[in-house]
Design a protein around this nucleic acid. Structure first.
Lengths: 125, 125
DNA sequence: TGCTGATATGCAGGCAGATCGATGCTGCTG
DNA sequence: CAGCAGCATCGATCTGCCTGCATATCAGCA
């Protein structure tokens, strides 16, 4: 559960580039797979997209159930998974719970997948 | 099945950037989720990593079963999924089946995830 | 042609996850 | 304080997927 939440942060560190040079360790593979698994769902991708394109870059549950066509518990469930994966952050204001993207989260994932060809200095940092 | 195989190709086109500007369509979300689902597995991530770091950038099934600790049918199954997702290509030479990464495949996925903050010209397409 | 070795496929058990209805919790509001 | 509205959690169902065993397929070789 919370292990997934920290997964992104740990991989952000100068650990290893999963698809870069050397074969990845089992543990690293499982961490990355955990985050990717949170992304690998149509409903959750649309949630991220909806939240990102919302007025203030944030949205509450009640704004998301209708466009998704899913029940409120289900939407809440998906938001929970995305939050635990470190992709969303939750802020409760009054009765509403506002969700917004964690700025660097998705970019980090993208970086973890690309490294090979972009930059040759992979030990420079 | 094959719809997943073509998913990457379709999204490579100047279609939409899933997490860029406007909310994504249901169909696009499902295509991207399909490819991500192929990636979101520890065994398959390690397979990609192993193949990528192999001598000639290619490897046959018999080279992969041991490091993964999985049975040959299981490894073959994962390779099949990765191939159908457009991430691997298969070449049969004699009795052996050699797999190698599809060069731009993973980079494409990474690009589909990043767009938002990198370039400000999101309506330029 | 018959045998051996490398892969692929079929089948089945078992577990993880997606979904929903019902319910509990917590701030507003009258 | 009572009622209500927005969310989270629980329990249950149903689907999909990972894995291995058994088996089929195919290429090279004696």
């Amino acid at each position: 559960m919370e292990c997934v939440g920290t997964a992104l942060a740990e991989m952000t560190m100068p650990q290893i580039s999963p698809l870069a040079g050397e074969p990845i360790e089992r543990a690293d593979a499982e961490r990355l797979a955990g985050v990717l698994k949170a992304l690998a769902d149509p409903a959750r991708l649309r949630l991220l997209s909806l939240i990102q394109s919302a007025p203030e870059g944030e949205a509450c549950v009640c704004d998301l159930t209708a466009p998704l066509g899913l029940s409120q518990p289900t939407v809440s469930h998906h938001l929970r998974i995305l939050t635990e994966a470190g992709l969303l952050e939750r802020e409760k204001r009054g009765v509403w719970a506002y969700y917004r993207l964690v700025p660097s989260a998705i970019a980090t994932i993208a970086d973890l997948l690309t490294p090979p060809r972009k930059r040759a200095t992979k030990k420079a940092r």
